[in-house]
Amino acid sequence: MKFGVVVFPGSNCDHDAYHVIKHVLGARVEYIWHKETTLRMFDVIILPGGFSYGDYLRAGAVARFAPVMNAIVQFSRHGGMVLGICNGFQILLEAGLLPGALIPNNHMRFRCQNVYIKVLDNTSPFTREYQTAQVLRMPIAHYSGNYYADADTLKSLEDNGQIAFQYCEPDGTVSENANPNGSLLNIAGIFNPARNVLGMMPHPERAAEKILGSNDGLGIFKSLVDHA
């Protein structure tokens, strides 16, 4: 079982993810430089949070053309697990590995706060450590986290069980009030149809140790280890 954490110019949550995998989980992990063109012997690739290429043009728009992305597309097509967190989610959408887009928050403010998210289904390789409908607490820190997709895409996400997490109240109620950025259907994270790719705006790697206030995010990494 080996994780790879991709490092783009401007990534800033790469070390957090590496730390959690190596020191909290005790699993094998390596950094992957964005100029790599081949991926060897990885089970899970993580696209970390940050501001790849300064968020120029659109968040994730330039990273999507980094040399490593071709290899990641191939890796995911062969069933490899890919987790995109925050900027990583934006990159997965720009790359077309997940449907829809993330546009600027509806209130035009950068949001850095803890949120509650609901696990919609615990049968995916990313969520098997959780219970269905379990509420998790973890931080968000983003300006462009407002999930948009057209009505047909939203319906297919719902019908295929591709919505991974929804922003909710502490008791699990999915409400407008609990939505920090204007995302349609309160979407905080989605899977691809094969469920080997997950993109999410909240940061599980920043909520993986009790001493940091919450370890609700650790389950995602643990689920992946168990899956392998």
Binding site: F65, G100, A101, Y148
Partner: peptide, 8 residues
């Protein structure tokens, strides 16, 4: 391909 995101 690059300058716009055709989704939005």
């Amino acid at each position: 391909k690059i300058l716009s995101n055709p989704v939005v």
